[in-house]
Amino acid sequence: MTTESTASRTAFSPDTASTRLHRALRVRLCEGDFTPGEVISIRRIAAQYGTGTMPAREAIRWLVTEGALIFSDSRKIIVPELSHDRFHEILFARKNLETEVSRQAFDNIGATDIEALERIDEQINDAIAQGDLVSYMRGNYQFHFHIYRLSQSQVLLPLVEILWLQYGPSMRYICTRWGASSIADDYHREVTQALRRGDLASFCEAIAADIEQGMLLLE
């Protein structure tokens, strides 16, 4: 399973330092490696990834156009802080788009994929038990996008990825605030059980329920 984005712009871009860095930063944002309000330093990013400042600047500006980062003034780039209403709206959009992407992926999910999802879910459960939010966020992203990429959607998948770019940092903040107990009841087991039964309706219902759990944290 790859962690690279399949968004159309990335997929059809040349393999350059800036596109590789853009893909890496996208994954980190989706996994919650950055926090709302965090200042992003072009020089620090360039140093972390061993690139020049020009590729780092291009990758970060690309993320700004996707809404993952914003300019707080002419010289500062930050991870945006989402309001309660906007975060709720993102989760609402996720529920609808991701359920449809999952439906499109269903026929492409084979036995090896189900086994991979079950392994990821075990790692997620271990992370929850240990209160390891970093590993939880990483595993949750991997679980969902293992499914979504199998849809091979060129329209909906890029939209889902953009929603996750905005969702990841704020969800990490919420999980950090409420602790491991806030994420104890995910629906990943129901997802894999439905896949083993070949039950499309229950599979999509479990995906939707898993996303709704995030909405309940906002109430």
Rank of each mutant, 00 (worst) to 15 (best):
Q154V: 15
Q154E: 15
Q154W: 14
V155F: 14
V155L: 15
V155P: 11
V155G: 13
L156C: 06
L157S: 00
L157R: 00
P158H: 07
P158F: 06
P158E: 08
L159F: 02
L159A: 03
L159C: 03
V160S: 13
V160Y: 08
V160A: 12
V160N: 10
E161H: 06
E161W: 03
I162P: 02
I162F: 11
I162N: 12
L163W: 05
W164Q: 02
W164F: 10
W164R: 03
W164A: 01
L165Y: 12
L165R: 13
L165K: 12
L165T: 09
L165Q: 10
L165H: 12
Q166D: 02
Q166E: 07
Q166S: 06
Y167D: 09
Y167Q: 03
Y167P: 00
G168P: 06
G168M: 07
P169E: 12
P169R: 12
S170K: 00
S170Y: 00
S170P: 00
M171F: 11
M171K: 05
M171D: 02
R172W: 02
R172K: 11
R172T: 03
Y173P: 00
Y173V: 09
Y173Q: 14
I174D: 00
I174T: 08
C175F: 06
T176Y: 09
R177A: 05
R177V: 02
G179M: 08
G179F: 05
G179N: 04
G179C: 06
A180D: 08
A180N: 11
A180H: 09
S181E: 15
S181R: 14
S181A: 15
S181Q: 14
S182H: 01
S182G: 01
S182N: 01
I183N: 01
I183M: 07
I183F: 05
A184G: 04
D185H: 03
D185S: 04
D185F: 04
D186I: 02
D186L: 07
D186C: 09
D186W: 07
Y187I: 07
Y187K: 15
H188K: 10
H188L: 11
H188T: 03
R189V: 11
R189T: 13
R189K: 12
R189P: 01
E190R: 13
E190H: 13
E190N: 15
E190V: 12
